[in-house]
Amino acid sequence: MATGLSKVVQLNESTANGTPGANELVILQDISLEVMPGEAVAIVGASGSGKSTLLGLLAGLDTPSSGAVQLDGADLFGLDEDGRAALRARLLGFVFQSFQLLPALNALENVMLPLELAGEAGAADRGAKMLARVGLAERLRHYPKTLSGGEQQRVALARAFVTQPKLLLADEPTGNLDAATGASVIELMFEMNAEARTTLVLVTHDEAIASRCRRKIRLVAGHIDGEG
């Protein structure tokens, strides 16, 4: 068993509730999870099983009603809001189902954004290199609306990897793509993940994609129903 410090993700009996009050809804119940560096973990489950909430907990965007979440050894909810933001900037990359590129920014600027927010130098060069890596060297100045869905998700991948995150959180990254495009995006994501040795937590309902991950955790009604 690895030590607590070496784990990228550690959830201890975390519970997340929605709609506080008399009709409180338990979304996640006593979830415990450990993810080791370089691991690829798929979280699968039906709609409403709590997959996205779990991802929100790991990112520090949702707050657990009980339990603890540690990222790279840091107690996520022992930090204040700015502390969690700094941790996200340092550790996390995100890939969303609906790409979530900023429409007013072109492809390069979207990729540069995390570096600019972190005040890092050489954002343009690093962004351009990363876009070249995802095969969009010719599309640097294109706005999201002029890119296809697959291209937009590639830009999102470039944005997620440009900060060289320790942990990549991907929420249904192929959910808005056709099968062929989705497969190529997934291929690219696993390639880049392997190159950067990034830890991957991937939420998907696609068993084929999930089976490419080393571990598969199945969520049912807010509980871990099994792990394979």
């Binding site: 990112a59 965007l61 809001e81 700015d82 933001a85 700094a86 996200r88 900037a89 340092r90 996390l92 990359g93 995100f94 969303f96 979530q100 900023l102 429409p103 007013a104 954004l113 995390p114 927010l117 972190a118 944005r159 900060t163």
Partner: peptide, 19 residues
């Protein structure tokens, strides 16, 4: 309204509220 999603994305990629 048009920038709301953008704010959320920026929060995800590490921007603090004060930032």
């Amino acid at each position: 309204q048009r920038h709301l999603d953008g704010y959320a994305v920026m929060r995800c990629i590490g921007a603090s509220q004060s930032q």
